[in-house]
């Protein structure tokens, strides 16, 4: 675990430093820019899906779906980050109590 944490730390630092250090033309290619611009949306969307439906190697529909849906409603109502997360947690916890 510690190895992975340190790899992440060093790697993320080098990614930041690289941007400040390389000439602008290197990543100026429009396709590279577009792909890099879309990466966060793809990764985060995948994380939402996996975190909502995966239970080990199987896919399940459980209290998490209800919680995330409640969080999405909070987002539509322009709630701040902490509220969105709390709404999702409380909703899922309540569903499990029932």
């Amino acid at each position: 675990m510690w190895t992975a944490i340190l790899v992440t730390a060093v790697g993320c630092y080098l990614l930041k430093l690289a941007g400040l250090s390389v000439p602008e033309s290197v990543l100026a290619h429009p396709t590279a820019q577009r792909v890099a611009g879309l990466l966060p949306a793809a990764m985060l969307a995948a994380l939402v899906g996996v975190q909502t439906f995966a239970d080990g190697p199987s896919l399940v529909v459980d209290a998490r779906v209800v919680g995330v849906t409640a969080g999405a409603v909070a987002l539509l109502l322009r709630a701040p980050f902490l509220v969105v997360v709390a709404v999702a947690a409380v909703t899922a916890a309540l569903v499990r109590l029932i």
């Binding site: 985060l44 939402v48 995330v68 999405a72 980050f81 947690a89």
Partner: peptide, 10 residues
């Protein structure tokens, strides 16, 4: 677990 998913969504 639902909070983590909601954090990614946010």
């Amino acid at each position: 677990d639902a909070a983590v998913a909601a954090a990614f969504l946010a």
